[in-house]
């Protein structure tokens, strides 16, 4: 257990420089975005009012005011989020392969630590999850600040609706998946995310254990897990089946998710303990 905690700390630290850069990029891009877009919107509004000789009231009547969705759908805002997601998916691979490749084979050291090898698997998974939730928390802190900045830059009359964080999240499809405003949605989003990490890790371990043959096994394992998870959709779509309540559907996905995570951990444990090669 102690080793596990140390390993998580170690794995997070190994990514910390890139991670902090990601946070800074997100912060800068989103804040600059808020400033650039808000001032742009106001400037444009005044231009239109001047050209068409409209009063504020007439303009608002014709074109409507502004709200935070004008920000949250722009590349300034979504771009860094997409970058962070891409970086973490990439790092989910790199967190394993960096220990095998290059002149220095750190995998030797890790596999010879006097601790159960499954700790390595869990520590890497935990590190990825810590990084994901860290980004999430960071975004949650940024959002109200950005919103406040936005509202201070837009003249009061032009502010269509003052939004709170949860309405911002609901108003934007992508953001709503990344940070679901309802707890049950949150569970589904991140349950799937956690499952994805474990299935991916076990697929990677297939490759690290059986190399060429392992690539095929890993891909097959990944596809099988995805199909198994999605299997209720085929059944639900079938008209001969009884109609299920949302709670029942949720329960089915929950059980399947837990099952797939469990199987991934069991296979992962077997691979890393008995089969993995350096």
């Amino acid at each position: 257990m102690k080793s596990y905690v140390k390993l998580v700390n170690f794995e997070v630290n190994r990514f910390i420089k890139i991670y902090v850069s990601l946070l800074i990029i997100t912060l800068l891009s989103q804040f600059i975005g808020v400033i650039v877009i808000s001032t742009g919107l106001m400037k444009r509004a005044h231009e239109v009012m001047f050209e068409q000789n409209l009063s504020e009231k007439a303009y608002l009547h014709q074109f409507g005011g502004f709200d935070f969705t004008h920000i949250s759908s722009t590349p300034w805002f979504i771009g860094p989020i997409a970058l962070c997601i891409a970086a973490l998916i990439f790092y989910s691979f790199l967190i394993w392969y960096r220990d095998w490749f290059g002149k220095n084979t750190f995998a030797y050291r890790l596999l010879m630590l006097p601790t159960a090898r499954i700790s390595l698997y869990f520590s890497k998974a935990t590190a990825i999850l810590v990084l994901i939730f860290g980004l999430l928390a960071f975004q949650m802190i940024l959002l109200p600040l950005e919103n406040a900045l936005f509202e201070s830059l837009i003249q009061e009359n032009f502010l269509q609706t003052s939004m709170d964080v949860s309405s911002i999240l609901q108003s934007n499809g992508i953001l709503g998946i990344i940070i679901p405003p309802y707890f049950s949605d949150f569970l589904i989003s991140y349950g799937i995310g956690i499952m994805f990490v474990f299935v991916l890790f076990t697929s990677i371990l297939f490759e690290r254990s059986f190399r060429l043959k392992g690539i095929v096994l890993g891909i097959l394992y990944f596809i099988a897990a995805v199909l198994l998870y999605l299997s209720p959709l085929f059944i639900i779509g079938n008209e001969t089946m009884p109609v299920l309540y949302p709670e029942e559907i949720f329960a089915i996905f929950l059980v399947l998710g837990i099952f797939i995570i469990g199987v991934s951990i069991i296979i992962g444990n077997w691979l890393i303990s008995k089969r993995v090669l350096v």
Binding site: K103, N104, F106, Y108, R109, L113
Partner: peptide, 18 residues
Amino acid sequence: KNMYEKVAFIPDAITMLP
């Protein structure tokens, strides 16, 4: 796992991070 406190292996490649 406890054997790794008892037997050390020194491979032909360095096992520490560069």
